[in-house]
Design a protein around this nucleic acid. Structure first.
Ligand SMILES: [Mn+2]
Ligand SMILES: [Mn+2]
Ligand SMILES: [Zn+2]
Ligand SMILES: [Zn+2]
Lengths: 153, 153
DNA sequence: TGCTAATCAGCAACTCTTGTTGACTGGCTC
DNA sequence: GAGCCAGTCAACAAGAGTTGCTGATTAGCA
């Protein structure tokens, strides 16, 4: 994702208005590695802007997704997660606390969009590859400190 | 998934009753590679058993999942898909028609549960790896013949 | 300054899935 | 063969997550 300043420019140059609500959402996402849900973004922004509505948060997150500034990832948790990291990467998902970590793709790895073995899906053209590693994060593997995030559905 | 006959035994031996509804669901899933949703199973079974309820279909699919006979996979389509294929494998998902294909894991591949590169998620213990290849199936890549399945959400 | 997008509150609605209740049926065991 | 009780059914309600809609108000930007 671009910086909040650059995003402001991008919004204006596309004829979208730059509102305080949108700026607050830019700030909440900037450098945020937590893969927040819409509700989480809502909670973050509400601290400094109690009047913002959840509807507006969804709207702006969808705008940013359309613009390609963030991506919306479905990790099999109950809700969509939003990801400002635009580098190609994959995800670790903790089954204990639902925390999500990024996994950088190694350049020499055979993981990304490569041909799949022949089979029933012959002729399938792969556009993208999503890899989800499920397991336990260090905290959850050690002992079960109670966490804010609920357990995985 | 075991054969319908074996499943019938498994149900009885676990104190679960063998009802015609359950048998019809066994039959619908047996050797079925389509990764049906609960609604799809419902539609398949209803052809020969119009009185079955969707509630019962969900119930039995959950029973089979608990027993480890099938797995419930979340492929980012609007609903859960049920998979009687218990061999370790991954999935191709067509963005055009939402068809799902199995991809067998090659034995010499570095794809399955291996250690992930060091990073923020240090100490993460990987239990399972889900890989979803997204793209276009041969049919959809060729021309757009209208398909029964709706487009991907 | 004015046009118009954006926001808000306050809803309703939608999809998928599970819960509930009360009545009934039919597997399974003895 | 009889009886217990799991299973099923209909007919709902409800929950979560997300989107839609309304009408009124605000405020960004030209
Ligand atoms: Mn990420
Ligand atoms: Mn499969
Ligand atoms: Zn954890
Ligand atoms: Zn297709």
């Amino acid at each position: 994702m671009k910086s909040p300043t650059e995003l402001s420019e991008a919004f204006r140059s596309q004829g979208r208005k730059l509102t305080p609500q949108r700026q607050a959402i830019f700030d909440a996402l900037d450098g945020n590695p937590s893969h927040p849900s819409a509700e989480s973004v809502y909670d973050m922004v509400r601290v400094h802007m109690p009047s913002i509505s959840l509807r507006t948060v969804y709207q702006t997150l969808n705008d940013l997704t359309e613009m390609g500034e963030i991506s919306q990832v479905d990790l099999g948790l109950g809700s969509a997660r939003f990801d400002p990291n635009n580098e190609p990467h994959h995800h670790l998902v903790c089954s204990g606390c639902a925390t999500v970590f990024d996994v950088a793709v190694e350049v020499d790895s055979p993981l990304p969009d490569l041909e799949v073995p022949a089979g029933l899906g012959d002729g399938f053209v792969v556009d993208s590859t999503d890899i989800i590693f499920r397991g336990m994060c260090a905290r959850c593997a050690a002992g079960q400190q109670p966490t804010d995030l609920g357990p995985v559905p």
